[in-house]
Structures are given as structure tokens and as C-alpha cells.
Simulated scan of single mutants.
Amino acid sequence: MKNWKKMLAASLAVTAMVGFAPQATEAAYSLNPEVKDATPALLEASQIGVLKHETPELQNLANKDAIVVMSFGTTFKDTREKTIDATVAEIQAAHPDVKVVTAFTSHIIIDRIAAKEGIKYPTPEEALEQLKAEGYSRVALATLDVIPGMEYAYDKGVYDNYKNEFKKMTLGTSLMYWQGQEEQADDVTETIEALKSQFPKQGKNDAILIMAHGTPQISNAFYSVIQAKIDEMGLKNVYVYTVEGWPSLETVLPKLKANGIKHITLMPMMMVAGDHANNDMAGDEPDSHKSQLEAKGFKVDAYIHGIGENQKIRDLYVQRANDAWDALEAE
């Protein structure tokens, strides 16, 4: 481990970017100044945290700034207003003189909302094309993703595909990104502390099951970090499981039985309380998580609220957006 750290230190040096958070946020890495002739591969490898790109050929353009907030989206209008719309409104309030655009990464959801509600949300690509047409030259990309998974990879793809179209572009991090390593911030613990504010009071026979999404991407391992942080914080009988990944509901069942759990509260760790929360988690069908647990003799309650309804979580998302904005404004 020590040798690995020495090798990394030879190539990378930590750069702190200070946002509107109460304390400095370690938001990005930059190459060690001793590296004079970095190859494209090394430059790519060093792009961690808040990303920043300046296009030399466009530096004569006047600054005209915008923020694009990217979210997967949801067809559930009520939860969308309480979570996505509420968070974007708070980002806008933090930057009252800046154009803030909401973009959805799910093309299916965009089409369904348009057909059902007559509202056309742009994709991130469409939002950037429109901003470019309107003469915007600098754009901060913010994300409402929970972990840096497949959806965040889409966000980074947008950044990579459009960064040369603007004078300057930045990309902020997901809600949970840094894990306290290498003197970085501990986004995971910070998020769990915020999430803890909505936990019900627990007795010795009570458990809280936090339903995450899950992903086929290697970033699915992030859920193990979240569980480890929960345990490290001393939160008893609080377990993370996923609807489309590992750990699954079956993974945590033996722990519930071993600890004598009789009552369970289910809650989603997703921005919105959409189809997964209402149907997969808390639906009346026999294969819902609630029904499966009840069939095994547990008493089950469901907290059907997206984490975007939690003010403490929204505050963290505003901080993530501020990190991207600060990087855009930095000289």
C-alpha cells in the first residue's frame, strides 16, 4: 500500500476547490507540476472529481454562463416536483443571475412526459446545443446522480463530447463520490448523516432497509462502501440492498433473522420515489419487497419518499453544483 501511494504521489497532486460548503471541499485532482510532458492517457487517468476543460481556440469569446442540471428523470409528477424540481430551484436560488437548465438523461422518460403532460424536457445534449445557439460560452454541468455509476458515465460522456464546443466546461460529482481517502472529503458519511435525519426511531427488534438502485457497472461495489460506513457510524440494523444489483434483498435476509428482527422499515435511496419505490419496494404484488418480507413473517412499513425530499440531501446537491460552478469561475 505504501509503495502504491508513493507511485500515485509521483504523478498526482491534490488540488482543493472551495465551494459554498462550510469547509473546504476536496473536489478534484490535478497533475503534479513536475509532470511536464503528460501523455493523453495520463491526462485522462488524472481526471478525477470535478472536471474542468478550457478550449484554447474559444478563449476570445465573452463569458456567458449557464448551469445544466442532469437527472435521470421520472414520470411520477408529484415526486418530481418535490425532489428534482425542488433541488433545481435551490440551485437556481444559489445562482439567481445565471441561466439554469434541467435536462433528463432517460430518453424514454422524456418521451413519456411529453406524451402525458405536454412538457418536453431536453436531453443534456439538446440543452447544450440550445445554449450554444443562444451564445452561452461557459457551462457548469451538475448531476443529481446518487453514486458515480452508469448514469454518471453518461454525464461524463456528455462532458467529453461537448467540452470543446464551449470556452469552458466543468462537470460536478454525484451525491456520493469521495470516500474520505487521501485526505478527501467523505461524501458517503456526509450523505448517511443527512439520510439519518429521516430514520424512524428503532428498537432492538427493528431494522431499516435502504433500497438503492444497483448497476451492472463495476461501480456497484460502491454499495459495499456505503454499508461499511453505516456500520462504522454505529448504526445498528441498517442495511443497504439494491433492486437491480448486489446486495439484493436475499442477501440481507439472513442478517435480519440472525438479529431477531421483527419489524422493518423500507425506504429508497433514490432521488425520486418512482416506479422502483412504489412498485418494486412497496407494491401490493406478491413479488414486491414488502410482500416478500411480510410472507416471511416480518411486519413492514414503507417510507415512500425520494431522498430529494430531504432538505439535508438537497443541501448536499446544491454543494455539488456549487463545486462545479466554482471550478467554472476559477481563473
Rank of each mutant, 00 (worst) to 15 (best):
N279W: 01
I109G: 05
M169K: 01
L31G: 11
T87G: 03
A228W: 15
T242I: 02
E54A: 01
M233A: 11
D65P: 12
I109V: 10
G149P: 05
K77Y: 13
S197E: 15
T189E: 14
S288N: 02
K2W: 13
I119S: 07
I110A: 05
V68K: 03
A24Y: 14
L31P: 07
L31S: 06
E44I: 07
I84Y: 01
K163C: 00
P268K: 02
E26I: 08
M271L: 09
Y29A: 09
N3R: 14
G274T: 05
D284C: 02
P96L: 11
G157D: 05
K290S: 08
A221G: 07
K36G: 07
D275V: 03
G274H: 00
P268T: 13
M211K: 04
G172F: 00
E190V: 14
Y239C: 14
I147H: 00
F298K: 03
F72E: 07
E294A: 00
K77F: 06
M281F: 06
T102H: 13
P268F: 04
A277N: 08
E151W: 12
D155N: 01
A321L: 09
N220C: 02
Y121M: 04
V18N: 09
D315H: 02
T83L: 07
P33F: 12
I230K: 13
G308H: 10
D37A: 13
K262C: 13
G135Y: 02
K168N: 03
L293C: 08
A142G: 05
G73W: 12
L128P: 13
K296L: 13
F222R: 06
A153F: 11
Q184L: 06
A302P: 01
Y154C: 04
R80P: 14
D186Q: 00
P96K: 01
Q181A: 10
P148Q: 12
T15H: 11
A273D: 00
M176L: 11
P148W: 03
P286S: 01
L58D: 11
M1K: 07
I226P: 11
E329F: 09
A127V: 06
V88A: 06
G135E: 07
L61R: 07
V252H: 09
A28V: 13
A295C: 08
K299F: 10
D323G: 14
K163I: 00
T170A: 00
E329T: 14
G297V: 04
S137G: 02
Q130H: 15
F298L: 02
Y303T: 00
I67Y: 03
L328Q: 00
A207S: 08
D111T: 08
Y241I: 01
K52W: 05
T265I: 11
V188S: 13
E329W: 13
R80V: 15
Q179M: 14
I109R: 06
H305K: 10
D280M: 05
P247V: 05
Q227P: 04
H213L: 05
K196N: 08
A66I: 02
V158N: 01
A66C: 09
H213D: 04
E44D: 15
V35P: 09
A277Y: 05
S248N: 10
A133C: 03
I192D: 11
Q181V: 04
I264P: 01
P40G: 01
A194G: 04
